[in-house]
Amino acid sequence: MNVSPDLVSDVAEVLLTEAQIEAKVAELGQQISADYAGRDLTLVSVLKGSLPFMADLMRRVSLPLRIDLMEVSSYGGTSTESSGLVRILKDLSAPIDGRDVLLVEDIIDTGLTLNYLIRYLKGKNPRSIKVCALLDKPARRLVEIPLDYVGFEIPDAFVVGYGLDFGEVYRNLRFVGVLRPEAYES
């Protein structure tokens, strides 16, 4: 993998600027604040991609809330071994039974991870589970799960930045951009 030192050179196109993201996150935060007023809200962030989104979103929600973090293994993972099943690498640190859970995701693509997570979290008896995704990429969707809050619908392109990675790199870009094919073909 050939990563340019400034990262930005590997980006073919800025899809969402920092300002656009900031404005959208504020808007989502307002909506969530209105919808969950008077309820016991827990924001659950799915590591690692949704970390920046979670950090910004939680500060735009003007309600008492709890946050929690989860991490699930991804297909392929760090090895080339393709057998095995998805695993919870980091589980919730507090019970969610009776609470309203809002799953905070960076991007919904096939929906396979989200489908697994929702099934898993339902087993913990929350009062409700809803989904807030910054990016929705419906082109390859296999599992149709209603997304309750969506920042942006994006085209079918490989995007990085604002938490999204390629080979664990580019997460710290402040915008969302389309990665140059040369960056992942090399």
């Binding site: 297909y75 393709s82 057998s83 095995g84 099943l85 998805v86 396979l112 991870t113 489908n115 697994y116 296999l142 599992v143």
Partner: peptide, 8 residues
């Protein structure tokens, strides 16, 4: 294998 992994 991907479907198996995600228990679909």
């Amino acid at each position: 294998r991907i479907l198996d992994f995600y228990q679909v």
